[in-house]
Protein backbone atom coordinates (compact mmCIF):
# COMPACT_ATOMS: atom_id res chain seq x y z
CA UNK A 1 0.00 0.00 0.00
CA UNK A 2 1.47 3.32 -1.01
CA UNK A 3 0.61 6.91 -1.84
CA UNK A 4 2.28 9.36 -4.20
CA UNK A 5 3.32 12.55 -2.41
CA UNK A 6 3.90 15.80 -4.31
CA UNK A 7 5.56 18.80 -2.69
CA UNK A 8 5.68 22.44 -3.69
CA UNK A 9 8.24 25.25 -3.25
CA UNK A 10 9.81 25.43 0.23
CA UNK A 11 8.30 22.13 1.37
CA UNK A 12 10.76 20.38 -0.96
CA UNK A 13 13.59 21.60 1.26
CA UNK A 14 12.16 19.54 4.12
CA UNK A 15 12.75 16.29 2.23
CA UNK A 16 16.37 15.83 1.07
CA UNK A 17 16.65 14.24 -2.38
CA UNK A 18 13.01 14.93 -3.29
CA UNK A 19 12.47 14.33 -7.02
CA UNK A 20 10.18 17.10 -8.27
CA UNK A 21 9.19 15.29 -11.46
CA UNK A 22 8.46 11.86 -10.01
CA UNK A 23 7.32 12.95 -6.56
CA UNK A 24 7.78 10.38 -3.80
CA UNK A 25 6.10 7.06 -3.24
CA UNK A 26 5.45 6.51 0.46
CA UNK A 27 4.67 3.04 1.76
CA UNK A 28 1.72 3.27 4.13
CA UNK A 29 1.18 -0.45 4.75
CA UNK A 30 2.58 -0.08 8.27
CA UNK A 31 0.12 2.70 9.05
CA UNK A 32 -3.59 1.98 9.26
CA UNK A 33 -5.94 4.92 8.73
CA UNK A 34 -3.20 7.47 8.22
CA UNK A 35 -4.40 11.08 7.94
CA UNK A 36 -2.86 13.60 5.58
CA UNK A 37 -1.50 15.38 8.63
CA UNK A 38 0.09 12.21 10.01
CA UNK A 39 1.51 11.38 6.59
CA UNK A 40 3.19 14.79 6.50
CA UNK A 41 4.75 14.06 9.88
CA UNK A 42 6.01 10.68 8.62
CA UNK A 43 7.91 12.34 5.77
CA UNK A 44 9.17 15.21 7.92
CA UNK A 45 7.06 18.19 6.91
CA UNK A 46 6.16 20.44 9.83
CA UNK A 47 2.42 21.03 10.18
CA UNK A 48 3.00 24.77 10.45
CA UNK A 49 4.46 24.90 6.94
CA UNK A 50 1.37 23.42 5.29
CA UNK A 51 -1.38 25.68 4.04
CA UNK A 52 -3.12 23.51 1.44
CA UNK A 53 -3.54 19.75 1.01
CA UNK A 54 -4.94 18.23 -2.15
CA UNK A 55 -5.90 14.58 -2.28
CA UNK A 56 -6.39 13.45 -5.88
CA UNK A 57 -6.66 17.04 -7.05
CA UNK A 58 -9.31 18.09 -4.54
CA UNK A 59 -8.62 20.35 -1.60
CA UNK A 60 -8.97 18.26 1.52
CA UNK A 61 -8.75 18.64 5.28
CA UNK A 62 -5.57 17.60 7.05
CA UNK A 63 -7.68 15.01 8.86
CA UNK A 64 -8.53 13.25 5.57
CA UNK A 65 -7.53 9.58 5.71
CA UNK A 66 -5.30 8.66 2.79
CA UNK A 67 -5.82 5.41 0.92
CA UNK A 68 -3.72 3.11 -1.22
CA UNK A 69 -3.02 4.72 -4.61
CA UNK A 70 -3.94 8.27 -3.53
CA UNK A 71 -2.00 11.25 -4.79
CA UNK A 72 -1.39 13.68 -1.93
CA UNK A 73 -0.01 17.16 -2.62
CA UNK A 74 1.11 19.62 0.04
CA UNK A 75 1.54 23.36 -0.46
CA UNK A 76 2.68 26.22 1.74
CA UNK A 77 0.92 29.57 1.22
CA UNK A 78 1.37 30.41 -2.46
CA UNK A 79 -0.09 33.09 -4.67
CA UNK A 80 0.48 34.88 -7.94
CA UNK A 81 -1.69 35.93 -10.82
Amino acid sequence: MSVLVKLSTTLRDCVPGYDPVAGMEVDISEHGGLSAEALAAVIGIPRTEIKIVMVNGRQSALSTVVRDGDRVAYFPAVGGG
Partner: peptide, 14 residues
Amino acid sequence: EYGTAVLVNILHEA
Protein backbone atom coordinates in the same frame (compact mmCIF):
# COMPACT_ATOMS: atom_id res chain seq x y z
CA GLU B 1 11.25 33.63 -4.37
CA TYR B 2 9.16 32.03 -7.10
CA GLY B 3 7.38 34.82 -8.97
CA THR B 4 3.83 34.34 -10.15
CA ALA B 5 5.07 31.16 -11.84
CA VAL B 6 4.54 29.43 -8.51
CA LEU B 7 1.00 28.85 -9.74
CA VAL B 8 1.94 26.37 -12.48
CA ASN B 9 2.21 23.40 -10.16
CA ILE B 10 -0.77 24.15 -7.97
CA LEU B 11 -3.08 24.74 -10.95
CA HIS B 12 -1.82 21.51 -12.51
CA GLU B 13 -2.51 19.69 -9.26
CA ALA B 14 -5.99 21.19 -9.04
